[in-house]
Design a binder for these strands. Sequence first.
DNA 1: TTCCCCCGTCGAAGCGCTTCGACGTCCCGC
DNA 2: GCGGGACGTCGAAGCGCTTCGACGGGGGAA
Lengths: 337, 337
Amino acid sequence: MVKITDVARHAGVSPSTVSYALSGKRPISEETRQRVEESIRRLGYRPHAGARALASSRSNVLALVVPLRAGIHVPVVMQFAVSVVTAARLHDHDVLLLTQEEGEEGLRRVADTALVDALIVMDVQLHDPRLPLLRALDRPSVLIGFPAAPDGLTCIDLDFKAAGELCVERLAGLGHRVVALVGSPPEVYVRGTAFAQRVVQGFTAAADRNGLVSSVHPCEASPAAARRIAERLLREQPALTGVVVHNEPLLEPLVDAFEQLGLRVPADLSVTAICPDELAGNLRVPVTSIAIPSAEVGGRAVDLLMRKLNGTPCPEATLLTPRMTERSSTAPRTLGS
Amino acid sequence: MVKITDVARHAGVSPSTVSYALSGKRPISEETRQRVEESIRRLGYRPHAGARALASSRSNVLALVVPLRAGIHVPVVMQFAVSVVTAARLHDHDVLLLTQEEGEEGLRRVADTALVDALIVMDVQLHDPRLPLLRALDRPSVLIGFPAAPDGLTCIDLDFKAAGELCVERLAGLGHRVVALVGSPPEVYVRGTAFAQRVVQGFTAAADRNGLVSSVHPCEASPAAARRIAERLLREQPALTGVVVHNEPLLEPLVDAFEQLGLRVPADLSVTAICPDELAGNLRVPVTSIAIPSAEVGGRAVDLLMRKLNGTPCPEATLLTPRMTERSSTAPRTLGS
DNA sequence: TTCCCCCGTCGAAGCGCTTCGACGTCCCGC
DNA sequence: GCGGGACGTCGAAGCGCTTCGACGGGGGAA
């Protein structure tokens, strides 16, 4: 293994000079820097991560806690993860993958052993048991999602409440008077998953504000469940003309189920969804939807962490404004319906 | 921060004794060990990962390279990743997440800086450009997937060739004489993705061996593409009664498309698939399938790596035998068809 | 009884890097 | 012409841990 002293000798300088040339923490003459860089290249020098971490008390590694709970849509999680890794690399950091299974002990472990400099936590619950720990930890963290009491914590996410509202507003604007939210599986709400709850809040608030008849239906993510919920909605709410879907795998089978029951989308029924754009755009009937900007959220979460690591002030709460893309699943309510 | 010397003082022993009590690399009397453990608990001691890595030249971190290429099924990748993390933790290791985007340079970086002790590489291509690098690296690695020339490398995967064969044998056994493989998107084959290629090999070999009429059709993963390929198959091969699907997101829309074209599954058309069990089992028509044992592969990949790290001999090639689960999508060929 | 070896523990020497204080040199301003 | 910065570099002191050699004491073999 080639070490910093080898480079120093080869370049005819001291090890500290090599270190400074590399980090830029002290001025080094252009000529010396050139020579050092040339030696590094020649010798194929790579600083030893452990030694660096020990001496600088910075590991340049971020922890990312990913959920593997039932009811969450895997591709979205993966997109987050990939965007976090990509963004981290731009800041010369790597990413350690933790599963939620490891729980609080896992967080404490990687933080206390100085394996990581900071943490990113996904799938936050309204009353997440990890919050006190994150507050107490001596390393900065960023939550992707908003708990009920986010004080003292840095959080970022799509504004899911506004997203729920926007879906309803759009349907109301098209003249629909009876709307339903078909949501994530029940266990997601039982756990108190923050983003799911907030969609419901927004949906309900906007429906009330607009004087709409509304109902909320958690739903399993299977074609059979789609069929059942569609039948039930038609039976219990014959006047229904607007549906908001917040359940990725259910979107396609649900639309199919409605059509098989004789409802044309969007002629008889307008559908909006909160889901990744790739999903909404690639269906047989492209669905008007609010995108989940995973890549942006992941990237910005890393940026926030970097600011905290550098001591730069940064906002505690970042709510991204939802943006709706109009597709073929929405239409004005026809007089007949 | 509480360090090993603090523990040593508190327990009335030397730091090295604490170290040995922790690692078990030298005999320590039961009584001393107890005392040390008590001190560790009392003080909340956690060994510093960087210091440990520097002194022992072991970081206890594994690198996992995940693909984010088009055409690969995300949930399967995620399952691999989670099972790798879980298995790694059982061996007291953590997992660093690398994206394929980082390429060879990324592999070299984490290996040469001693950030990781070993590497797991997914989504291997038949002529993967990373192979020479992996062979040259001074850290052990395991490939999930088999390249064309795996010599000198440790590989593990489902035996996809056998899986392709098994699908055909099953259909042949049911009396089907004309079969088709609907595969992954074309770019997957163009890249030379190993597992996709091997399925084709197995499919073709078994079809020839059984004297079947067969054809292979790469296919995009969209409902529209499903519809097109179904129409085309019926047009070009009216005698078709057996289909093998190796394309997760396409499975459901494809079955739907066949039925909408008037073919009943399994009465008129038998379908088998190679995909995760959760997918095959939860369709409207549960599909007879060969599972992709992601969790097992991930876990065993880690086990292999641990053996290599410990210097224990281990097999170079591990091919898992495919197992078919009979469901409702296969039936004997009826005389009429 | 003597010798040897093993058990349990200690002290010290690093592992490879960063960082702090120090020191000479050069240049600017007065 | 002289004092004082700023610049560029060096040496040494750790960062917290593992590991190697050494050593005293006790027990078994001869």
